[in-house]
Design a protein around this nucleic acid. Sequence first.
DNA 1: CGCATTTGACCTGCGC
DNA 2: GCGCAGGTCAAATGCG
Length: 548
Amino acid sequence: MEVAVERPPPAPQVKAEEKRPDAKPEIAARPPMVGSALPIVFESFPSTQRDAAGGINVKQEERRLEAARAEMGEVREENERLKSMLSRIVSQYQSLQMHFLDVVKVQEQASSAAKVAEKKLPVAPAPAPNPGTDDDGPDDLVSLSLGTRANSGGAPRRKGHERSSSSSGTAETTTAADADDQGHHQLSLGLGFARGNGLPSSTTTATDDDKASHASTAPVLNLTSDSSGSADDNDDAKPALAAAGTARKSPSAGAGAGDRSADDEVQQQAKKARVSVRVKCDTPTMPDGCQWRKYGQKISKGNPCPRAYYRCTVAAHCPVRKQVQRCAEDTSILITTYEGAHNHPLTPAATAMASTTSAAVAMLTSGSTTSAASASLVHGHGHPLPAAAGLFGPTTMVSTAASCPTITLDLTSPAAPHSLMHSSPYAAAAAAAAAAGFESKAFPAAWSNGYLAYGGAHPSYYSKSSTSPALGHLFGGSLGVPSRPEQLYAQSYLQRASSLGGGHGAVAPAAVTDTLAKAITSDPSFQSALAAAITSVMGRGGAAAAQK
DNA sequence: CGCATTTGACCTGCGC
DNA sequence: GCGCAGGTCAAATGCG
């Protein structure tokens, strides 16, 4: 087994990054979140503060300036602490990965010895074990590709809805190369399952898709859910594997699906898993950075609050939908259920949420099927659902009993951020978000200064978004999505390792918690962006380690 | 006037 | 097969 490496070139992920020529891959080299390097706009000291007589209340202004300087100093210190913490996390990750690679090597040696002994057996992929079994071999390595899809130059990009789209002008597949051809970088939300070695099917798929989609400007749909795809892959050998319990029962399932259009199939795949997010929110919908159009409302059984149905309207044919419903027990809690994958560039904040939810979907789908392609998450050992719990922390629930398996990120329970920090940074962020109440929409001066002005440089993204553009700048435009599989791998592995190791892997100082709480109270969508940021940072460390 | 929302009708899947 | 519930459609309505 080897770590699946899908490393697209570090193309700009969002337009925000294009505005930052100084952006560097290392987080430590980034411009500080708050510092003199940033064009801070002192909005809180406008010229209108001058008195009407034309004189200046010098004392008052000086006092304010001093306060602002002190505040900046504090934030700078926090920033330094954060940076040191991140570097520590990265180094710890690297050592963990070295250890992991050692283990992998030992396993590879063992499995190669076993293969020598079983030379008679065909090479065909064995039927996937039940999720949770520990006999995932190296071949079962599955990695998750989340996010930016720059032209990866033939790198495995997709495994799943492999299907010839050449016969239809409504093809839903467009490759990253196409996106580049069209002059925009496709920051998309992809859940790709890439084999750690070989990848014959994905490679051919990419080629086919390239051919088919060159004539099309259809948008990308990257949610590569596993059941159908794997059924397509293996329908001759493992027909029963398609019965993952989530797909609509279709007699024509498989590569030769006759009546079902490609669009339908994509829809089916996108519908398989959902992510439900529970947050305390006073607004009608959770500000997640996307534009939504309401298309229906229903009173569902057991809840007097109506359930609203929204469709993403950022792109014309974006398949993403969400359901919004208030909790029956506590109407201040908003339950937002996301379904599908965006086929268009996202704002950083929306990307963060999308990556969070899609990562949850990845966890879910990796554990909800028995296909070989999705035998388990990344390192493929143990129980996928616990793995999901490890990623998302104690505030996560996974429900696979329903026809549409749903993973619930409960950001309302007042969990203890400090303890959660030990097991999952994401959970810590979620808990911090919960502790912060997720309610304030006001930006304190420290956050509104500079960031808003700077981040607002991309009106095309934020013209109608309900989410502050500040987030885009906060994360440098490059943290929206863990763009490489090893990033998620890194995240998952580090979290697991750190939890196994008694929590010494990702211990955060209390100051970080304070920072989180401060930031989260600044913007309701910060928690999602933060989650993606942590994911990305850790992933970056993982990528750096993988290159060594 | 165009767009978003509302809302009743219709469709589909699932359980009995 | 029937009924129920969830989900979607589309005409009507409201709003800027």
